[in-house]
Design a protein around this nucleic acid. Structure first.
Lengths: 150, 150
DNA sequence: GCATCTGTACCTGTATTAGTTACAGAATCC
DNA sequence: GGATTCTGTAACTAATACAGGTACAGATGC
């Protein structure tokens, strides 16, 4: 993953669309809620469209809407659509091949990375956009209760 | 986490020290195995020393060694010592407070982030430097067998 | 005192990201 | 069919983070 806020913004975008139902949303109104530039939104929408999570339409009265029900879009789908990065990076320069540790540490760390990523994916795969939308309401309704377990 | 290779290099460093036993290692020889500059190593050693994972000694015949047994240092200790980043970032600019979604999406995403991070931490907490060192050998001995489950 | 090693300040080049302007092309409306 | 309203994308900027590197003060051992 990354320093980027792409994942967070993409979830935001999809949640807005889930709330909007069938009505297509314009990048400008989404940008207003996210508080950023419409082009930033459109770039993310492109990635989401490539992943078949949204459908977009150009031209007047165009915009974007969910390509399937919010209950069938998981945060893992979103993560894969917009975040290229690994959870942590390996060495930039390959370590010395003449050192017994340097020679093999890469493979061992890759195994660790795989374990970490599958743990992350398991969490994300179990959260849908619909659930995000549902968790939004009680938070604003009850006002307190710091967490509404996602 | 991050684009940075700090975590990977830090694990590498500690594994070298675990292999070296009581003998203090110089930043230069570590840098040789890692294939980078000694200063990069010293910077990481600083962070590891602050976290009480290694002890360093200045001056002639100085260097660094593990502060405790390799079996009592987990990758979570290492991660916390050298990686500042979160697994994913939230919005840079706070979303609109006048939009019902924008208003609360931050809190919901924070919960997701916490879930993801605790999953990551659980994986890392169960892997020790000793185990990394142990997994190094069979990999080079058997040669094949793509993974030696970390 | 001299040689050796860490700790740290400072500078560089590179990559990534978000934000922005600008504009071509698609779709709709009249 | 022509104006209007959108998306998609290119091009540029500014901010940030990271690795790599030089230099040197200060600590330690001999």
């Amino acid at each position: 993953m990354a320093t980027s806020s792409r994942f967070a913004v993409a979830v935001h975008i999809l949640t807005l669309m889930a709330a909007a139902g069938d009505e297509p949303l314009k990048s400008e109104s989404v940008a207003c809620s996210v508080n950023t530039n419409p082009v930033v939104i459109r770039r993310l929408l492109c990635a989401l469209a490539r992943a078949r999570l949204v459908t977009t339409q150009t031209g007047a009265r165009g915009g974007a809407r969910l390509a399937r029900r919010a209950s069938r879009i998981t945060l893992l789908d979103v993560y894969r659509a917009v975040e290229a990065r690994e959870v942590f990076a390996l060495h930039r320069q390959p370590p010395s091949r003449s050192c017994p540790v340097g020679m093999n540490i890469g493979a061992v760390l890759e195994n660790v990375l795989e374990d970490v990523e599958s743990a992350v994916e398991q969490v994300l795969a179990n959260i849908t956009i619909e659930r995000i939308l549902r968790n939004l309401r009680p938070a604003s309704a009850t006002g307190r209760g710091r967490r509404a377990r996602a």
